[in-house]
């Protein structure tokens, strides 16, 4: 780690999970298979179906949001910047992948990586001007980008314009989202615990000191941003081919705000926090749908998420898991890496 490693060694080290990581991945895979079996054979307890389509739908949305929030955490949590244009990259991925399937009539398996790469490319183009600024200014630049993207889409008739765009083949299923979300988490975790992750933390802690260590700060910020945009694009491609209809209004800064609420609830710089935040918010909002409508308060549902945000900021500003991980995500010290020479 204190030396420049050959690229293949870095890649190999990044793929290592440690036994806890493999155990967690195994449990995760088992759960996914269980849910799928329950859905396939309509297992039920009494009259309650264990995995009805409604549950599967919500689990799928959770999976997509996990990809979004965990990747946003890279920039807002680990790197410590404040970017608020994540829904813009979601839009780029959704529309780019739809262009591939609907306009070029190519397979979804082409569209999926194209959506992710489109997110990354646009992310790079945004990062160029955006990281000339920092703090509040970076927030404004990314917010501006989010609005511009939505406006461009609304004015492009060929991709549906303000009416939205439908007819994507239904290629995204629960199992695909489960697999992609799981792989995304593994990749993000390995990144966070790699040299890149340490540099991001260092930049967050003290940008000038990082620069004084010879770190090209701008470059590492851009890498984090582009990776986050890549995953947002990936999520967009999944989403477009799940809903089979996309509309510019789904990608406004309001969507970004939803993601931020989940991120802050779960906690900055914590991947397990991101999963937790997404799950809690989704389940909360869904269960409130039923509860509130019983009291004729259905329209109050949307007040809940800003309210949650306010309560977190007042009572637990670091979020539920801020800077910590569940034990099944191996801590940094346990990540296998070559021991430097001892003195």
């Amino acid at each position: 780690m204190h030396t420049i490693q050959p690229e293949w060694q870095i890649m190999r080290d990044r793929l290592r999970l440690g036994w806890r990581g493999y155990a967690a991945a195994g449990v995760y895979a088992a759960l996914v298979i269980l849910v799928m079996l329950a859905a396939r054979y309509q297992w039920s307890i009494g009259s309650v179906e264990l995995a009805n389509p409604y549950y599967l739908h919500n689990l799928t949305l959770i999976g997509i949001n996990v990809i979004l929030v965990a990747s946003l955490n890279l920039v807002n949590g680990y790197l410590g910047e404040f970017a608020i244009g994540h829904a813009g990259f979601l839009a780029v991925g959704a529309y780019a992948s739809s262009v591939v399937t609907l306009l070029f009539h190519q397979s979804f398996w082409v569209a999926l990586p194209v959506g992710a790469l489109a997110g990354a490319v646009v992310g790079y183009l945004i990062a160029l001007p955006a990281f000339k600024t920092f703090g509040d200014y970076l927030a404004i630049v990314t917010l501006g980008f989010n609005m511009i993207i939505v406006n461009i889409i609304q004015n492009l008739e060929v991709i549906g314009g303000p009416r939205g765009w439908g007819g994507q083949p239904k290629m995204t299923s629960f199992w695909l989202v489960a697999v992609v979300a799981g792989l995304s988490l593994i990749i993000l975790r390995n990144l966070v615990y790699s040299n890149y992750g340490r540099v991001w933390l260092a930049i967050r802690e003290n940008e000038i000191a990082a620069e004084m260590m010879g770190v090209d700060v701008m470059r590492y910020k851009m890498i984090a941003f582009v990776i986050a945009a890549f995953f947002a694009g990936l999520a967009g491609a999944l989403w477009a081919h799940y809903q089979q209809y996309i509309h510019p209004s789904s990608f406004t800064y309001l969507r970004t705000t939803d993601l931020l609420v989940m991120l802050y609830l779960g906690g900055m710089a914590s991947l397990s926090g991101s999963v937790l935040g997404v799950t809690i918010m989704t389940v909360l909002l869904e269960s409130l749908r039923g509860v509130l409508s019983q009291f004729n308060l259905a329209e109050w549902r949307m007040v809940i998420s800003p309210l949650v945000l306010i309560v977190i900021m007042l009572t637990r500003p670091q979020g539920l898991m801020g800077n910590r991980e569940f034990a099944f995500v191996p801590r940094r010290e346990e990540v296998p890496r070559r021991e430097p020479a001892r003195g």
Partner: peptide
């Protein structure tokens, strides 16, 4: 000083060797 508070001592030092070959 500009210590990276959330990195270990070893990691603080490793970061400084970033540019060295």
């Amino acid at each position: 000083r500009g210590i990276f508070a959330n990195l270990t001592v070893q990691e603080n030092l490793e970061l400084a060797t970033w540019t060295r070959k």
